[in-house]
């Protein structure tokens, strides 16, 4: 495989961005990232983005946002109706072909105009499940209940995950839930989607993330310490909840193995865990031990921007690698009910 690295990123997340359209808040991020490595859009070999029409409430919503790249003259470009992490995957594939050396990736959404947990119900099987409108919290609560009853986790453990995420998020200027909270206080919260408490559930945000990938010497030229992608893979589980063991993740385990998570020591991990229960399942599936710092950014529990949160995990991990905060990190993205789909990316310093 060709050596490809994350060389720059930028993100913005807020509880709600009311006074700017998607393209209006994405343009400064795109510009900032390109300028930080001295590239213009015309220097970039491939551009790929991730967004969702259902979240935007508008068909072909991505068509408005492409203007932000400055696609005049035309650019080589693609779009996935997935989290930006999969757009990064598509760009990484493109770079593997050796015809281009750089790629710009972005993912974004404003979920605040709608009711995200209800919008996500339209992801379910349209014939058997969606007519019941099970919202996203309720579906995760089914999984949480199974985990608790199987004795895999207890409330204490979930509250510890939530409390630690909040402590980390308090240090992250991009997080939107930045107040620390003790395990005891979290355990005292009234359940929201029983057995899940408010602190078990991610903090929805509007925003986006932009990343630049570069290959080989081009990456070394543009960055002092590129965060090299040593492995990247993604997998899906079955959709039908009844055929899955919701207390574990087969797809995350396979993706983790293929990406080589276990090949060497992991310093820290940025996991797309929209619920404390998802974090538990992911650390098990990826075999991350107690010595691994989980979600130093606070993760999705600190700020959850749909369609960008997975890409933000990669950006956060890469930035820490580039800063020298660690040498080897795992970044993860997920999608679908009870994280049906999972992407794992292993990043390393030089």
């Amino acid at each position: 495989m060709r050596d490809v690295a994350v060389i720059a990123s930028a993100q913005r997340q807020e509880r709600s961005i009311d006074n700017e359209s998607e393209v209006e808040f994405m343009v400064p991020l795109m510009q900032q990232v390109k300028e930080s490595v001295g590239l213009t859009q015309q220097d970039i070999g491939f551009t790929c983005s991730g967004s969702s029409d259902f979240i935007a409430g508008q068909a072909f919503s991505f068509v408005m946002t492409i203007d932000g790249t400055g696609p005049v003259p035309p650019i080589s470009e693609s779009h996935v109706e997935m989290d930006g992490a999969w757009a990064l995957y598509e760009a990484w594939v493109k770079l593997q072909m050796g015809e281009v050396d750089t790629a710009l990736i972005y993912g974004y959404s404003k979920s605040s105009p709608g009711s995200l947990r209800d919008v996500l119900a339209t992801q379910m099987d349209p014939y058997y499940v969606a007519p019941l409108w099970p919202d996203a919290f309720a579906i995760e609560a089914l999984a949480a209940r199974q985990m608790l009853e199987a004795g895999k986790v207890d409330h204490q453990r979930l509250a510890e995950i939530a409390s630690r995420a909040r402590t980390h998020a308090a240090t992250n200027p991009h997080a939107v839930r930045r107040t620390e909270k003790s395990v005891e206080d979290i355990m005292g919260e009234a359940p929201m989607a029983d057995p899940l408490r408010p602190s078990d559930i991610s903090a929805a945000a509007d925003g986006g993330c932009v990343v630049i990938l570069a290959a080989g010497d081009r990456a070394r030229e543009l960055s002092d310490r590129p965060a090299w992608i040593r492995g990247i893979d993604h997998r899906t589980d079955a959709h039908t909840l009844g055929v899955r063991d919701l207390t574990q993740s087969m797809s995350a385990r396979i993706a983790g193995e293929k990406a080589g998570v276990g090949d060497d020591k992991v310093d820290f991990a940025e996991l797309y865990a929209p619920f404390t229960t998802s974090e538990y399942v992911l650390t098990e599936a990826l075999g991350l031990g107690d010595d691994v710092v989980i979600n130093p950014s606070g993760g999705a529990l600190g700020a959850h921007t749909m369609m960008a949160s997975g890409l933000i995990r990669i950006a956060e991990a890469a930035e820490r690698i580039s800063r020298g905060d660690g040498d080897r990190a795992v970044a993860h993205a997920g999608s679908g009910p009870v994280l049906q789909q999972n992407l794992v990316c292993v990043l390393e310093g030089e």
């Binding site: 700017e20 359209s21 409430g57 709608g114 009711s115």
Partner: peptide, 19 residues
């Protein structure tokens, strides 16, 4: 066939320039 009515409400904002 089955018919599933779909209703979602969005509070859209025009953004700075359009406003």
């Amino acid at each position: 066939s089955v018919t599933t009515p779909l209703r979602m409400e969005y509070t859209a904002t025009p953004g700075a320039s359009l406003s």
